[in-house]
């Protein structure tokens, strides 16, 4: 009853004007991922005493750093409306290649690193060629590439973990600058990846072509953009960053594993999309990806910091929160388009 009496005069006073104007509503909804991040941060700050400690915040950064390298490449791919399902397997392969060259063939640094990065780039390029020249959907070409990369990893490693790693990998993955309590090199690598991605997307001609190809392939082609080249390029970029992430993650883990870590793929796509980059292409960017990564990291880390939560339920809760956040984002982004044929 009371709420009704409170509301009535307001509505009567301005019958045609909603409480929040359309412009403001759009600004608020455009920032939905930021609100999600704030809400999660406040929630964990209130429920856990350890969450806000600098050590823990630092932890979040290093936890999302590997993901951030993957996500830089994935953002390019999703912006064109395509997908790359091979990143986790490519990363496993490149990590294994650099370790194998160094440990078993005694190849000098930095050749193992360069070969690994080259392999990742090449695999992305091949997926791109398969998709554009032979019109295989990227969903399938990258899935096939994932099997190939996974198989090569197994073949090369014979199922064994290699823990003798090149020093570059160790430095990039778990080194620190300025003593044992210094800044993690991994975080810097991730930040540089995101920054380069940001600059390329925002300021270069190529970046514009990526957005336009994703927004409307016919329109891009009519403007003379070779969309096949753009699609091949974004998959190549994704392959390069997957390769880098692979080398870095071996350094972080201290060993090259004989199999891919499947959660890399899901977490990467989850984080990028959560940030607000559209799966249909054309919308989003590196800033959104950064926010998506922070949401993801906050969520994963925050759950660890609440002792009363069964650790075995962590994935379930992450999944549910991801689901809810995506639904909220979609709801805030507005209703379905009027024209259902488009």
């Amino acid at each position: 009853m009371t709420t009704q009496t409170e509301k009535t005069p307001e509505i009567a006073a301005s019958p045609s004007k909603p409480l929040i104007s359309g412009v403001w509503m759009r600004r608020i909804t455009a920032l939905a991922p930021v609100w999600t991040l704030l809400a999660l941060g406040i929630f964990f700050a209130l429920t856990s005493q350890t969450f806000l400690r600098p050590v823990n915040l630092n932890n979040i950064l290093s936890q999302i750093s590997t993901l951030a390298i993957f996500a830089t490449g994935m953002t390019f791919v999703l912006l064109t409306g395509e997908i790359d399902l091979s990143i986790a397997a490519v990363a496993a392969l490149t990590g294994m290649i650099s370790a194998y060259l160094f440990a078993n063939l005694k190849v000098q640094e930095p050749i193992p690193l360069l070969v690994a990065l080259g392999t990742g780039t090449l695999m992305g390029f091949l997926s791109g060629i398969a998709s554009t020249r032979f019109r295989i959907p990227t969903f399938m070409s990258t899935l096939a590439m994932s099997l190939i990369a996974g198989g090569l990893t197994t073949y090369l490693s014979k199922g064994r973990t290699i823990s003798q790693l090149p020093e570059v990998s160790v430095f990039l993955g778990s080194g620190r600058i300025g003593g044992s309590n210094g800044f993690r090199v991994l975080v810097i690598v991730a930040a540089v990846s995101l920054l380069v991605g940001y600059l390329v997307l925002k300021y270069t001609r190529f970046g514009r072509y990526v957005y336009m190809t994703g927004a409307s392939k016919p329109a891009a082609r009519l403007a003379g953009i070779n969309t096949n080249v753009i699609l091949t390029a974004v998959l190549t970029i994704s392959g390069f960053f997957a390769g880098l992430a692979g080398v870095v993650s071996t350094g972080r883990l201290g060993s090259a594993l004989p199999a891919a870590i499947p959660s890399f793929l899901i977490d990467t796509i989850g984080a990028v999309v959560l940030g607000g980059t559209s799966l249909n292409g054309g919308r989003g960017g590196m800033v959104q990806t950064l926010i998506g990564l922070l949401i993801y990291g906050t969520l994963r880390n925050g759950l660890d910091n609440i002792p009363s939560i069964d650790p075995l339920l962590k994935d379930v809760i992450t999944g549910i929160v991801l689901f809810v956040a995506l639904v909220i984002n979609v709801l805030l982004a507005g209703r379905a388009p009027r024209d259902k044929t488009g």
Partner: peptide, 14 residues
């Protein structure tokens, strides 16, 4: 060339 479908040739949100 400008097509008969403006919706196809222009990027409406840009």
């Amino acid at each position: 060339f400008a097509t008969e479908s403006r919706r196809k040739s222009l990027l409406m949100e840009e």
